[in-house]
Design a protein around this nucleic acid. Sequence first.
DNA 1: AGGATGACATTAC
DNA 2: GGTAATGCCATCC
Length: 139
Amino acid sequence: MVRRGDGGPLGAVRVDQEAHQEAVLTVVGWIPAAKVLTYGDISELLGHGGPRRVGRALSLAGSEVPWWRVLRAGGHPAQGLAHRARTYYDAEGTPLLLPAREAYDADYRVDLARARWSPTESEHVRLARLSDSLGGVGP
DNA sequence: AGGATGACATTAC
DNA sequence: GGTAATGCCATCC
């Protein structure tokens, strides 16, 4: 539950960010196993803020969400998390692009062409409603 | 107020 | 296939 405008003038600003963070976490939670989205995809789906905001929200959420299903634009997992993420990809069967000669276990990227999640129509409606709840109109 | 920082993206070379 | 420059948005110093 989100409380709006009840913390004073500075609180009003913070409420929006909290709502946005909540929306990011919600979307991440909708990504099915073995599927992924990029930071840019999520910011675009929400229609607010930018990719960095998504990373910010995930870093705050910690392990409460499937963070390994959110990647950078090139298919690499979040910086410094490749090793931890690999375990999940292995378990879920996420399609990976492995180098011909694997130097170390973090040397890989996710096959975005096969693994990128496409929201269904009903999910898209929910996304639109989520986007609306952030302020009605995009920036 | 002004600058540095961060789980990023895009473009250019 | 890389690295560098620029844009971006909120937070922290």
